[in-house]
């Protein structure tokens, strides 16, 4: 395993930066282009890159499939949960202003941060789960057939 040394070192360097960039896109989406969909995909790319270089077992040790599968549902539940919370507070479904009735616009901002987090979690989970599903099956082509 000596010969992938450069790839390994560079991947270790990049994965952290990619995750940091994903968080930036996620939480800076209110001020600049970005948001949950983009951040989720970028976050998934970090783990897929790690899996490509270090192997599926390593990345599944970091991020086990059962957690990924839970995350897929958790994001949608978080999004819809914000809407249900708004209803419990006495407003319409997904009327985020109800989170802070004295400052409707602040409530909107809070609500947007939560639902964007939900979007990001679901997209990350789906992308990584699909990658695991593809990479986890025994390939028909051997290494020499390419």
């Amino acid at each position: 395993m000596q010969h992938h040394l450069i790839l390994r070192v560079i991947t270790k360097l990049l994965v952290g930066m990619i995750i940091l960039f994903a968080f930036y896109v996620q939480f800076h989406g209110d001020f600049s282009p970005g948001g949950g969909f983009q951040a989720g995909v970028i976050m998934a790319v970090a783990f897929i890159l790690y899996g490509l270089v270090f192997g599926l077992e390593k990345v599944q040790g970091v991020f086990p499939p059962w957690i990924v599968h839970k995350l897929v549902a958790l994001g949608v539940l978080l999004y819809a949960g914000v809407g249900v919370l708004n209803m419990l507070l006495g407003y319409e479904f997904l009327h985020y202003g109800s989170l802070d009735p004295h400052h409707m616009s602040h409530g909107q901002h809070t609500g947007i941060i939560w639902i964007e987090a939900g979007v990001g979690i679901t997209v990350t989970g789906v992308m990584i789960a699909i990658y695991y599903a593809f990479a986890g099956r025994p390939p028909r082509l051997g290494d020499d057939d390419w």
Partner: peptide, 29 residues
């Protein structure tokens, strides 16, 4: 004034059309 988010794209996507985006997330799911 209504949403308090400088990026109009985000405020349209997440708040004005929040139900639409919930549908999109459900589609991804």
């Amino acid at each position: 004034e209504e949403i308090d988010v400088p990026n109009v794209v985000t405020s349209i996507l997440a708040s004005y059309r929040g139900f639409d985006t919930l549908g999109e997330v459900a589609v991804v799911f």
